[in-house]
Simulated assay, not measured.
Amino acid sequence: MISPFTSRLGMNYCPSDDELLQIEALLVEPSLRLKRLDEEIAVLQQERDFLAASIDPHKALLSPMRHLPLDVIQEIFVACLPTHRSCVMSATEAPVLLGRICSSWRAISLATPRLWTRLHVVDLSQPRGGPNPLVDAKVAQRVEVLNMWLSRSGELPLSISIYGTARDLLQTLLPFAARWQHIQTVQHSLEPWSRIAEADVPMLESFAIPSLGQDNWLAMFRGPRISGFTTSAGDFTTGNLPLRWHQLTALQMEGFPRGDSMTSQKNIADRFKVP
Rank of each mutant, 00 (worst) to 15 (best):
G154N: 08
L190M: 13
M148E: 13
V135W: 06
Q181M: 11
P157W: 04
L174H: 13
T165Q: 15
D168F: 00
I162R: 00
N147F: 14
I183E: 01
K138N: 05
R152N: 07
L156G: 10
T165L: 15
P127Y: 06
L150P: 09
L156V: 13
G154H: 04
L150M: 10
A137Y: 00
P157C: 07
I160V: 15
I162D: 07
G130T: 06
A137H: 01
E155Q: 10
P157Y: 06
E155A: 04
E191G: 00
R179N: 10
R179E: 08
S153P: 13
V145A: 05
L174M: 14
E155T: 07
G154M: 07
F176S: 04
L190H: 06
A178V: 09
V145P: 00
R128Y: 04
V186D: 14
P127Q: 10
H182M: 11
P133V: 08
A177G: 01
S189E: 09
T172S: 15
V121Y: 07
L174T: 13
S159R: 08
P131W: 10
L169D: 09
A178T: 11
H120T: 10
V186G: 08
L156N: 05
N132F: 01
L146M: 09
S159P: 03
L173C: 11
L174E: 14
H188Q: 06
W180A: 02
K138R: 08
S153Q: 12
Q126Y: 10
R128P: 05
T165Y: 15
L158C: 02
I162G: 01
K138I: 06
S161N: 13
A137L: 04
A140S: 13
D136N: 12
T172A: 15
V145R: 04
A166I: 10
L170P: 12
L124I: 12
I160K: 00
V186C: 08
G130L: 09
L156S: 13
V143N: 13
A137C: 01
L169T: 10
A177F: 00
R128N: 05
E144W: 06
V143E: 15
Q141R: 10
M148T: 08
N147K: 15
Q126S: 09
M148W: 08
A140T: 13
Q187R: 15
L190A: 06
H120Y: 04
V143A: 13
V186M: 05
P175H: 05
S159I: 07
R179T: 07
Q181D: 13
P133Q: 04
A140R: 12
V121S: 01
A177D: 04
V145L: 08
S189G: 03
N147Y: 14
